[in-house]
Each structure stands twice: as C-alpha cells, then as structure tokens.
C-alpha cells in the first residue's frame, strides 16, 4: 500500500471519528445532513457485499467493517437518539435521495465492467459515493453558522478522495496497474464537487474567519 492510499483511508477514518465525536460528546448533529449519511450507508452496503466472499487483507476487512458499522451507527444516532435527533436540522435537509440513487443505479446498469449483481452493485456504489455529499453541501450553504467540527468533517471527507486520486496515479505509473476508468472518473467527479467548498474552507482558515458558504 502506498502513502497516498494510506493518507486517503486515514483522512476518511478521521472524518468519521470527528463526526462521531460531535455526536457522542457534544450530543449534536447540527449542520449534518441525514440524507448524506443515509446515502453513505447505501454506498458501503452495496460496495462491501463481497466482504464475506472475497478476502484481500486483514486491514481491508477491518476497515470495511468499521465503515459499515460507523455509518449505520451515525444514522441511528441522528434518527433515534433522544437528545441528538433534536439537534438535526430537518427543515433545511430537504434534498431527495431518490434523485441521486435512481440515476446512479440506471448508470450502473448501463456502464459497468461486467453485468453481474456484485459488479453492478459495486459500480453503483462508486457513482453514488461521488455525489452523496451533495445534500450535505446544500445544507451547509443554507446554514448561517457552520461549526468547526462540521467544517473539518467535510474537509477531511473531500481530502480522502483527493488522496485516492494521487494513489491511482501512483499505482498506474509506479506500480504499473491497469486503467480503471469507472473508479477514476467517479473519484475525479467526487473530488471536483468539493472544489468550491475547499476554496471557502481554505480562505476562512487563512483569514481566521468563521466558515460561511455563499448562498
């Protein structure tokens, strides 16, 4: 495993730890989109259906279980925890899942490497992951106050796929791996969606101001 891949996985893991910290210690999910979190559950469930069938490494299996477990528990806290659920900005988190799920599923049926259940689900999970942050970004744009934890959470989540892009470049040129258009292009789109957020995040950090996205 190269350093970019590890950095990507670690920023991804750190983003989840940050969000769980906000939920468990602060007892708050203010500014967090339940829609996005539910999309991540769908992403992980459809991508890791091969967990019981194919073994790559201890690291891989553990990380998959962690991503599945934490994403499900985040959704549980936001929906059912009696204190946390009251901090959820339900009225502004209105993005409809189906507008993302349906096109991604149709695209996965049309563009995939092999027309098998596992392969189509895997492809679907990549397409859906690329756009799953959209409800979260819409929610941030509508929020007057973005707390540091939430801002850092979204930043780490964006940094994760950016590191994966470097990892793919490294694997292609240095480790001589094959071309993989589906993960590469969806990963590129996923990172590009964060461009605007990155710009304002870095700007607010440089000016030591509170993060605010223009409406």
């Amino acid at each position: 495993m190269n350093a970019f891949r590890l950095a990507g996985d670690m920023t991804h893991l750190l983003s989840i730890i940050l969000l769980l910290h906000k939920i468990r210690a602060m007892k708050s999910c203010a500014g967090i989109s339940l829609r996005t979190q539910e999309l991540y559950v769908i992403v992980f469930v459809t991508r890791y259906v091969d967990l019981s069938m194919k073994y790559y490494s201890f690291y891989n299996s553990i990380m998959k279980i962690v991503f599945l477990g934490t994403s499900i528990s985040i959704v549980w806290y936001m929906r059912y925890h009696k204190v946390v659920k009251q901090t959820y900005n339900k009225d502004v988190d209105t993005f409809r899942h189906i507008f993302l799920i349906l096109p991604c599923f149709v695209l996965a049926l049309l563009i995939n490497r092999a027309f098998t259940v596992i392969e189509v689900l895997w492809t679907f999970s990549l397409y859906l992951e690329a756009v799953a942050i959209l409800p979260q970004l819409v929610l941030l744009q509508r929020s007057r106050n973005i707390d540091n934890l939430t801002g850092n959470y979204v930043f780490l989540l964006g940094a994760y796929r950016a590191f994966y892009l470097l990892n793919w470049i490294y694997r292609f040129f240095i480790e001589n791996h094959q071309v993989r258009w589906i993960p590469w292009l969806s990963g590129l789109l996923q990172t590009a969606i964060y461009a605007d957020f990155f710009y304002y995040y870095i700007k607010s950090w440089k000016n030591r101001e509170k993060l605010k996205l223009p409406a």
Partner: peptide
C-alpha cells in the same frame, strides 16, 4: 504487462 487491478481499495 500491467498488473491486473483487484478491488483491494475501500
């Protein structure tokens, strides 16, 4: 030849 890409990523 190039290495076959396995789905060993997350």
């Amino acid at each position: 030849g190039r290495a076959v890409s396995r789905k060993d990523e997350l």
